[in-house]
Design a protein around this nucleic acid. Structure first.
Lengths: 227, 227
DNA sequence: TCAATACTTCGGTTACCGTCGAACTATGAA
DNA sequence: TTCATAGTTCGACGGTAACCGAAGTATTGA
């Protein structure tokens, strides 16, 4: 009767409010401990522990032990992608969070998606790279051109190092607020890290908001501005 | 505490097995009656009715009354996209359906995704169109080139008519089995319809499988073959 | 070795929600 | 008008799973 993989198990997993909170909290790409996630989800430690083992069993998150702490992070970028897609649906249905604070506006401008830059600035960067032929889209894959490799290296990114890793260098990720692609993959991650190192921006602790400094704003506009 | 739209409501909606079955059944793009969906989901009519009103409230499906029947279909292509994305996750986790019949293999070759061609052949067509510069990807958007418009017209598709509609002409959709893009949007739909009209293929009633005729296999390979 | 912290497991409670059948409404056919 | 079919609403039942606290395990630090 049924065709294709079974959606309901995974959807049900995401469907519990506490677990959804946990997953959302991990969307910033950081690894958090069980206690922190319990706090984030608003449940007791024992409850969170149970949720986390279910999420781990389903391969939505991965644990990493470090001393007496246990850190959890999203299993991979695909999981993050599905979560963003669900946010897209939820946002359009007007099921936005009750509390719409000042952070919501900032989230639209620049936020961290798993581990890369998302929001208006993320999309702007991506479009700029494409427009200047530093990046090309071939099918759903994106890749750096020769000029793009020079650019990245000049920006202070060690491509050879990145390419050693298992994760794809370039990947696209659909932005739930902008409804356009932005750059993911290990390069996306490295770009964000580099911009943080340069003092252009820094992550807001405890949220996914990225705060852009005055200096960063100018430098970013200078490098990726449409003008 | 929480950032972004609330995922859990929508995920919980998809997370119930009966509702997931309903949504999966609607992935072929057809509109089905409440009774048919009840049958498909394996629940009583009253139960299905309850589910359907919840899905309608959440704008995941849309009802259409016709006489004393009430037909339901997926609200839009974005919903279908999220469902496919979830299938992608589920497939990778090995949560494939218990029963793996002969249809599963056929589904990998050619199936209907909402209303367009998906599976190996869908991806092949998409890549072929891109490779011959009939289609270009610009950011996440895809568009027909001038040559592409000629091609589509020559293939018997009335582009002017399609562009009158509200739905985007070209759209990409991520294929859960191939993990590559294929063509969605109103053109994707029209292409499939046209190929059915030409007798190349036809939908298998009661599943998402697309059966390709001998003639169709040759003609498709002739037109979109990589050789 | 003892104490403290981080997490897991267990047991018991509670609440929600999916389920069905039966009664009700609406549309169409005879 | 009467009957039949399609769908909705309601009430009752039952099972699942989320939740907490307490006890148990593991790791670190003194």
């Amino acid at each position: 009767m049924k065709e294709g993989p079974d959606i309901s198990q995974i959807a049900a997993l995401i469907g519990d409010p506490a677990r959804a909170n946990i997953l959302t909290a991990l969307m910033d790409g950081r690894a958090l401990t069980a206690s922190e996630l319990a706090e984030e989800a608003g449940v007791g430690l024992s409850t969170a522990s149970g949720h986390l083992s279910k999420l781990t069993d389903a391969d939505l998150v991965s644990p990493r032990k470090s001393g007496r702490h246990k850190y959890f992070h999203l299993a991979d970028a695909e999981v993050a992608g599905v979560l963003e897609a669900l946010m897209g649906l939820a946002a359009r249905r007007g099921a936005t969070r009750v509390r719409t604070g000042p952070k919501d506006a900032q989230m639209q401008v620049a936020r961290v998606c798993y581990n890369h830059l998302a929001g208006r600035m993320g999309v702007q960067m991506y479009r700029s790279l494409l427009g200047r032929d530093l990046l090309v889209e071939d099918n759903e894959n994106v890749a750096l051109t020769a000029a793009g490799r020079d650019f990245a290296t000049g920006f202070g990114i060690d491509l050879a190092e990145l390419e050693k890793g298992r994760t794809l260098l370039c990947r696209t990720c659909l932005d739930w607020s902008e409804r356009r692609n932005h750059l993911a993959g290990s390069l996306g991650r490295a770009m964000l890290t580099r911009m943080e190192d340069l003092g252009w921006m820094h992550r807001d602790a405890g949220s996914r908001v990225i705060c852009v400094t005055q200096k960063g704003k100018a430098a970013f506009e200078d490098m990726f501005g449409s003008a």
